[in-house]
């Protein structure tokens, strides 16, 4: 059902091939599964386990360690309001209270229409621009309560759909290595010599 689609399977295989060990691809593949469905389903985890050669329990163990992965559907827009020190000093709590009121849900909740999930987040690395928030991991900086209202309005009106894709989509650009350009991943067991350029001579 929510195993990877054929199209995503091609991407998945390309990602797996970049690593000397298949399991390394697990987190990028979990993101791919989340991009496909907005969350990570049980079937997706089974599928990923098959793809990288580990048990579903191992996939589950890894996946649940990381906060970005969701195992149940959430809102189309995940609004993460930072509450760590720099943001807290600059009014993050007040912003969160306002967001809770505006959206009618408590932090952690999803609006009835499935549009928004509001969440408390930890430091988002925009501390000088506090308080900050991310919508599906796209920044909004120095956010006032009025800014927040406008943001919600714009999201509801679909004005930001270009900039902010639905939950699950991270980078819109993927790395792609053309076969003739890539060196290729080699299992470490198969390498026992220093790289060619360490021969005491200039490479150029």
């Amino acid at each position: 059902m929510s195993r990877l689609t054929d199209k995503n399977l091609v991407i998945a295989k390309e990602i797996i091939a970049r690593y000397p060990r298949q399991k390394s691809a697990l987190i990028p593949l979990l993101h791919l599964a989340q991009e496909q469905s907005g969350y990570i389903s049980r079937e997706a985890m089974v599928h990923l386990g098959e793809l990288v050669g580990v048990t579903s329990a191992e996939v589950y163990g890894t996946a649940t360690f990381y906060e970005m992965f969701r195992f149940e559907p959430i809102g189309k827009y995940l609004v993460n309001i930072c509450g760590t020190m720099s943001c807290a000093l600059m009014g993050a709590h007040e912003l969160m209270h306002h967001a809770e009121k505006r959206l009618g849900v408590k932090a952690g909740g999803t609006t009835q229409d499935g549009m928004f999930t509001l969440a408390h987040a930890e430091c988002q690395a925009a501390c000088t621009e506090a308080p900050c928030l991310q919508v599906n991991y796209r920044y909004r900086l120095r956010v006032s309560t009025a800014d927040l209202d406008n943001l919600i309005d714009d999201l509801e009106a679909g004005k930001l759909s270009e900039e902010i894709p639905a939950h699950g989509v991270l980078a819109k650009v993927r790395q792609h290595i053309a076969p003739d350009r890539g060196v290729g991943a080699v299992s470490p067991e198969l390498v026992d010599q220093a790289p060619a350029w360490l021969n005491g001579k200039a490479a150029l």
Binding site: M68, G182, V183, A196, W197, A203
Partner: peptide
């Protein structure tokens, strides 16, 4: 030709693989 096989036409070859996390300090 700056990354990958035979960078700048030399015998220096290396892949840079973009990897990304999922939320864990």
């Amino acid at each position: 030709g700056y990354v990958g096989k035979n960078i700048l036409g030399s015998n220096f070859s290396v892949d840079i693989i973009l990897h990304w996390g999922a939320g864990a300090y």
